[in-house]
Simulated assay, not measured.
Amino acid sequence: AKAAALFTVDHLNASDRFNVIKFNSSVTMFRPNPVPAEFNEVQQALAFIDAISANGGTNLQGAVLAGLGQEMSDTTANVIIFITDGIAALDQQAVIAANTKKVRIFVFGIGTDVNKNLLTQLAANNNGLAEFLGNDEVTQRISEFYAKIRNPLLQNIRLTFTPTAVDEVYPLQLPDIYVGQQLIVLGRYAQPGPAQVTLTGTSFGEETRYEYPVSFTADSLANRFLPRMWAKSKIGALLVLMSGVPEGSNQWEEWKKEVIRLSLLYGILTRFTSFKDPGPPTFVEEENAGMIAPSDFVLQQNYPNPFNPETRIVFYVPLSAEQQHVVIKIYDLLGRLVAVLFDREVAPGRYEVTWNGKDLFGRDLPNGMYIYRLEAGEVMLAKRMTLLQ
């Protein structure tokens, strides 16, 4: 972290004003407020940084609030470059409330001990970026990162759609655009056809506007990779939000369920899901009942797969579930429900359903990949299958 701070101060623009804040269990400021990046001030700041030694504690909250509490102009591009190599807690809402000058917070996490989710959210909430570096790549990566953020091309970005039938757009907060960087925005639309995307922002102090005519396709099989990209972006946004609330809280659990749902539906690995093949199910026999059932819910791979004109899906309900409401649903790769194969209360045992490749209205569905999902209480299991007419 010290090498990163030395590099940053040594590469200030001549017109910059700056300050240095060191923190461990306490917070110490180089100057009460930012000072011009003149030679003497820079040299004293470098000596201030060089004298820093690891001394226990990581008062992340105090350091961020101290930085935001400095005297700053409303007309300048105010930036905090935050460098840390420790683990700490942070009240994200307190930081947002203290950021009255629209300060952009850029974060460098150094080493393996940092809380990536927390620091990513800190940057995202304050219109910045987060970078995570190994101890052996500080100079190169910070040099590249610092060169990028010194000269933003477009700031305070806003994106609108006409007609407005576009929702669930990610990232939730659009970042500034820098040299050599692209802006990727993912959303969902309900109405295919022609539309206009309007991008506005501030470029070198002036309001800038760009308009792009687009056409939203009605072909659900076109650009098949996009739904998964959208789902991955949404999962990332949810994980960042989850890091800002107490684990196990009602809000945290709701977001967790949505992460799991998207993960299973789109085949995206998360900390809550695994796509490892568990092998054949383990069966147990209930004493004196003569009934055999698995010890956990099991959703088997459909057979045949690929299929035409129909396929069979087998699932098992465990003895521990007793009477259980089970639903088997089919989704396309856009996440749209296309069929419900099974929806009723069942006892433990083996069940088999057949799908003929038709939707809820009895219409033939196009060739492609589909997701079938078992839902039973809090249990969700999903697999993929391919329809070839």
Score class of each variant (00 low, 15 high):
residue 35 V to F: 09
residue 181 Q to L: 02
residue 310 E to N: 13
residue 164 T to W: 05
residue 70 Q to E: 13
residue 261 R to P: 01
residue 244 G to N: 13
residue 115 N to C: 06
residue 41 E to R: 15
residue 264 L to D: 05
residue 249 S to L: 13
residue 264 L to V: 05
residue 26 S to Q: 14
residue 321 A to S: 10
residue 148 K to Y: 02
residue 18 F to R: 06
residue 49 I to F: 02
residue 64 V to S: 02
residue 22 K to C: 11
residue 180 G to L: 06
residue 370 Y to G: 04
residue 135 N to W: 11
residue 46 L to N: 05
residue 140 Q to A: 14
residue 304 P to W: 04
residue 82 F to T: 00
residue 315 F to T: 00
residue 278 P to T: 11
residue 80 I to W: 01
residue 116 K to A: 12
residue 285 E to P: 02
residue 193 G to K: 04
residue 134 G to D: 10
residue 195 A to I: 07
residue 330 I to Y: 03
residue 209 R to A: 03
residue 166 V to A: 12
residue 199 L to C: 00
residue 186 L to S: 06
residue 129 L to V: 10
residue 264 L to H: 14
residue 85 D to F: 00
residue 46 L to I: 08
residue 55 N to V: 03
residue 320 S to I: 11
residue 282 T to V: 13
residue 12 L to S: 06
residue 276 K to R: 11
residue 205 G to K: 01
residue 42 V to P: 01
residue 177 I to R: 04
residue 329 K to H: 15
residue 159 L to D: 00
residue 56 G to R: 05
residue 250 N to T: 13
residue 63 A to R: 03
residue 91 D to G: 02
residue 72 M to T: 14
residue 123 A to N: 09
residue 156 N to L: 09
residue 254 E to S: 15
residue 76 T to D: 15
residue 303 Y to D: 03
residue 151 N to M: 10
residue 259 V to F: 04
residue 66 A to G: 00
residue 365 L to Y: 11
residue 77 A to K: 12
residue 327 V to R: 15
residue 142 I to S: 08
residue 158 R to L: 09
residue 335 G to I: 11
residue 177 I to M: 06
residue 184 I to H: 13
residue 270 T to E: 01
residue 327 V to D: 13
residue 303 Y to T: 06
residue 235 I to D: 04
residue 276 K to S: 08
residue 334 L to V: 04
residue 313 I to R: 00
residue 177 I to G: 03
residue 267 G to M: 08
residue 149 I to Y: 01
residue 241 L to G: 09
residue 205 G to N: 05
residue 193 G to N: 11
residue 357 G to K: 05
residue 239 L to E: 15
residue 17 R to D: 07
residue 49 I to P: 01
residue 179 V to N: 10
residue 45 A to D: 05
residue 226 L to C: 01
residue 194 P to R: 03
residue 290 G to V: 01
residue 364 D to V: 09
residue 258 E to F: 09
residue 246 P to Y: 14
residue 385 M to E: 00
residue 259 V to L: 02
residue 336 R to S: 11
residue 370 Y to C: 00
residue 248 G to T: 05
residue 301 Q to T: 07
residue 42 V to S: 07
residue 93 Q to P: 01
residue 218 A to N: 12
residue 363 R to V: 10
residue 185 V to I: 15
residue 85 D to L: 06
residue 252 W to Q: 14
residue 184 I to E: 12
residue 133 L to P: 07
residue 160 T to G: 08
residue 245 V to N: 11
residue 299 L to P: 04
residue 190 A to K: 15
residue 8 T to K: 02
residue 327 V to A: 13
residue 382 A to D: 02
residue 186 L to W: 10
